[in-house]
Amino acid sequence: MILNRFIRWLGRYEGWFGGGAALCIGIGLYMGLVTSPPDYYQGEVVRIMYVHVPSAKTSLFAYLVLFIGSIWYLWKRDPVIDNMCHATAGIALFYVGTALLTGSIWAKPTWNTWWTWDPRLTSFAILFLTLVGYLMLRTFLDDKEKEATFAAILAIIGFIDLPIVYFSVEWWRTLHQPMSMSVRGISFAPEMLTPLILMSIGSSLLFSYMLMVRTQMLYLERLLEAKQGRLLSETRL
């Protein structure tokens, strides 16, 4: 299939993804920490944006990849796609955790609280819990094929659920806490936009690189299990 061939072709340039990610993130970090100006209202704290926004964007992108991969698995039943989904979930969990932590650190100086039930924060927390549930479900199932199918179903349901969670929390919040702590608009200077874009590109490249490495890791683990003579699928109810 043409898509498989495309992915194999991409895999040959794995190192380029890693190198490109390192380059983008390196330049982005330098520009973000040194050359970009501090914000008028938030001061130096605005520099957290250069790690927070890219990791949040990348985790949403990762979840989109997980959703598409899950549909693809249910359609084609390709075990490598299942490995890819499993790898994506792990990396997405890592990115969501990073986005939550940095968001919390950013919220303390700007909103003077570590946590608020903001729709974005809440839906990210739900996303985090969903991904934890996803990975737990995978560890509790022994049959590989069943594991892949059930996990794919869970990922699809979770993806559909996410916008509903976002809107319900938004309605709920406008009812209970008037938006007194809304984000004060950061007036984007072009010096701020360049490192942000660089960090976002670097972060997505890093995600692709991590995805390749982790898929490979899970594939090799399965190969080793097969080589050690264990059955690939053993049914236990």
Partner: peptide, 10 residues
């Protein structure tokens, strides 16, 4: 806060 955020990420 900035250095903590960067350490926690990197």
């Amino acid at each position: 806060f900035v250095s903590w955020a960067y350490l926690v990420t990197l």
